[in-house]
């Protein structure tokens, strides 16, 4: 266990290259347990890349070199003995476009359980329970309890996105990563997802990438500002927006560039 028990993620000197292009430069930061931390910055600043480092899904896309260390719960996830399968069980990700699997609502929610357990270890009653619990947590149970057998693809976008969050919950993740989870949604959908984030915080550490500064401001506890692969500033959201410590941050949140 690390010295600071209230940190979910501690990153030290993280550098990342896509081929020859360096996308992250010496990123060092601590993300607190149970809070919502937002990553902001102009396009191409490396915020999505950093997010993807936290469950090492970057490695599925071409040639990626990573140096430095990222500790989750004190364990460096770039250690050679780390199983990506177990890692991703604890660190789930929600994407920009809702991407429910082309299966029923029910099967989407239990997909993670099925992937991680032996087939005969899963009893129907346990699965049913997991579905109800997960859907209740994302406020979908009431709407969908009679439509569990429907194709998830036919739901409204907002419901799809909530379902994508619900899909992570049966695995009891430590951290939920969100990559611009509201950019495909309308105002009401965005509000619903943000409300959901508030209700999930505390139990889960949430890291959210957003290009929407207003969203970062109203929906996050802490805020990390990135520019050209470097972490410029990390502080409480109010402080970052009211009294930015770095002139680059001040100019960005004033809208001088980006």
């Amino acid at each position: 266990m690390s010295a600071e028990p209230n940190y979910s993620i501690t990153a030290r000197d993280v550098n990342l290259w896509y081929g020859k292009f360096q996308a992250l430069r010496n990123v060092t930061t601590n993300i607190k347990h149970g809070l919502i931390t937002s990553l902001i910055g102009p396009s191409g600043c490396g915020k999505t890349t950093l997010l993807r480092c936290f469950n090492r899904v970057n490695e599925r896309y071409g040639y990626v070199t990573t140096t430095g260390e990222i500790r989750l719960l004190g364990k460096n996830i770039y250690d050679p003995d780390v199983s990506l399968i177990e890692l991703r069980k604890s660190v789930g990700m929600v994407f920009q476009r809702p991407n429910p699997l082309p299966l029923s609502v029910y099967e989407n929610v239990v997909f993670g359980l099925r992937v991680h357990a032996e087939a005969d270890a899963l009893r129907k009653s346990a699965l049913d329970e997991a579905v109800e619990k997960a859907l209740t947590e994302v406020n979908l149970w009431h709407d969908l309890k009679d439509r569990l057998g429907h194709k998830a693809i036919t739901l409204q976008l907002e419901q799809q996105q909530k379902l994508c969050i619900a899909r992570l919950l049966p695995l009891k993740p430590e951290i939920i990563l969100m990559d611009e989870p509201c950019s495909a949604l309308d105002v009401e959908g965005t509000a619903a997802i943000e409300e959901l984030m508030f209700s999930l915080k505390g139990r889960y550490t949430i890291v959210i990438v957003t290009h929407n500064m207003a969203q970062a401001r109203r929906a996050s506890d802490e805020c990390i500002f990135m520019l050209l692969g470097e972490m410029i500033e990390h502080s409480r959201t109010e402080d970052l927006f009211l009294t930015p410590g770095n002139p680059k941050t001040a100019e960005y949140i004033e809208g001088r560039y980006g």
Partner: peptide, 13 residues
């Protein structure tokens, strides 16, 4: 591709 990403991100092989 998004279907595959969804699977990988819950730890599917």
């Amino acid at each position: 591709q998004s279907f595959r990403e969804a699977c990988w991100n819950v730890g599917a092989t």
